[in-house]
Simulated assay, not measured.
Amino acid sequence: MAPEPAQAQPSADYAILQEAAEWFAVLRGEDASHADQQEWERWHAMSAVHRAAWRRVEAVSAEFRQLPGEAARQALDDAGPRQNDAQRRSLVKGLLALCLTAGLGGAMLLRRDTRSWVASLNATEKTAIGSVRQLALADGSQLWLNTATALDVDYGDNLRRIALHEGEIYIVSARDSRQQARALVVDTVHGRLRALGTRFSVQPQGDTTLLAVYEGRVEVAPRDGGAPRIVPAGQQCRFGDGVIGEPFAVDPNAAAWIEYRLQPEQMRLDDFLAQLSRYRRGHLGCAPEVAHLRLVGSYPLADTDRILAALEATLPVRIHRLHDWWVTVEPLPQNK
């Protein structure tokens, strides 16, 4: 039998983030004392890393409560296209200031650029966190929107265009019925993808966009220049900043989300939890000691808490809940 991998030591980032969450729980408790407040102030002033961890916990708390982010989203939706550019800029500026005052806007602006964020707020097609939706397009193409996805569909005389602002989509493209066939393209902040009779998925991820091609071919053209490249079936690649990364093999189970499930095949636990965290509000973390554990199976996404319970029942881990919105998967306590 192969030896078990050595237990990793908890990273400073993980440990400090947990400390920040624990302090948040203490200070929000009914029995929080003046001494607790003073001790937290000493902890908070100890280093910039502590302060950054505290801001992260506050941002997750605010986002979980959907305030003021959801109010800002609703206000922008209500504004609609009838307002002129100056009115919309004024509204966006005010709402961003509101979010920043509440401590949430900073986290939002770190996650994505302001332009993409505003476009997401005003997108015509959206899914909420934890939702998956199938959409039939006018040309017969089928489009799936993964959790927390925002996009616009613009079918004009010369182009069939999908503008993906955030989230993830899966497309089964159809032939254009018009005599002068229009290209089907997907635009992200990083460039344009042109379908060449295909099934593929697209997911903006920070500084790059991930393209996975399951059938046919897709042409990738980075927004900031660089020669286009055709990616064939069975391959995926990342592109951004004028660069297209080297293709690598597609994970055939990666698109299981269109059937509202995750299907890991020897996937690390930390990678699985990163995927699962996209379908629930709040923070879902993984202790470094158990990150290496591997998962196989099919996990329906209808109830993410049930998935966590299944992990606890089948792996040497426990689910630790500091708050409804702060959950970590940790090793079982050692018997003494």
Rank of each mutant, 00 (worst) to 15 (best):
R88V: 05
A195D: 10
W40I: 01
G130M: 06
L269Q: 06
I129P: 00
G167E: 01
P331C: 07
V231Y: 01
A195R: 00
S298K: 13
L110T: 12
V57H: 02
V243N: 06
L27D: 06
H44D: 05
P264F: 04
A310S: 13
S141K: 00
V213I: 08
Q18L: 09
R217T: 03
E246C: 02
L164M: 06
V329S: 00
Y155D: 11
A183P: 11
T304V: 08
L91K: 09
Y155Q: 11
A136N: 12
P252C: 11
A256N: 11
L273Q: 03
M1V: 11
E125S: 04
R28V: 01
G156L: 10
G105V: 02
Q180C: 03
S177A: 15
E39L: 13
L301T: 02
L311E: 00
A313L: 11
T188N: 02
Y299F: 15
R88W: 04
V189S: 01
T101S: 10
G240H: 08
P300I: 09
R280C: 06
A119M: 09
E166I: 05
Q179A: 15
A233E: 08
R175D: 12
E4S: 11
R182G: 11
H34G: 04
A123C: 06
D78A: 15
E215F: 03
R82C: 07
G105W: 06
G234W: 08
L143S: 06
Q205D: 10
W144Q: 04
Q263R: 15
G206R: 11
A8V: 09
